[in-house]
Amino acid sequence: MKQALILCALGVLPVIAVAESREDWRTSGPWQIIVDPAVGRGCLMETVMADGTKVRVGVLPQEDGGYIAALNRDWTGIEPNKSGIARFDFGRDLFEGETRSVIEGDWRGGSAFFNNPEFLENFEQGRALTIAGSGGIQFEISLTGTRRAVAEVLKCQEEQDRQVAE
């Protein structure tokens, strides 16, 4: 089942939709599960960490993959339409991939596409994730409750897929 997130998707970089078009689905611990019509009714999980960093992980139903995005109001140095490299350290495994800058009102940050099932496994099973970008930003997020939240995202996505197909 955990591969469903990977298998549900395709493409290169996510287009992050503006917040008002999203629909709340339900919550799972600190994570809000949301449906994003802008990416073909893809489900995502989102939370704001204690340090003010908004973290979002979502499905891209039209793509063969998903995305992870992190935004913070303090990251004012991030410019639009920039690409870079980021590393994702789960302690057990280390990942690296391309990122693209994202600006949503006051929020600035980056987003990375993934389709490696191991990344999602780490995200579900890990305790903490340290993210470092080529722009010099480094921060750690807690992965408490991610296993349940990812399961909810998959459930949400299955529901959306069913609606889309019908």
Binding site: L7, D64, F88, E96, F114, N115, N116
Partner: peptide
Amino acid sequence: VAPDGRAIKPLVVQLDPGRTMLLRVLR
């Protein structure tokens, strides 16, 4: 590999195009 010896894993891996195509068809 990373300085601590771990292999750096890619975020994006090449999916089997045949299987990807098959899944699209099946969906």
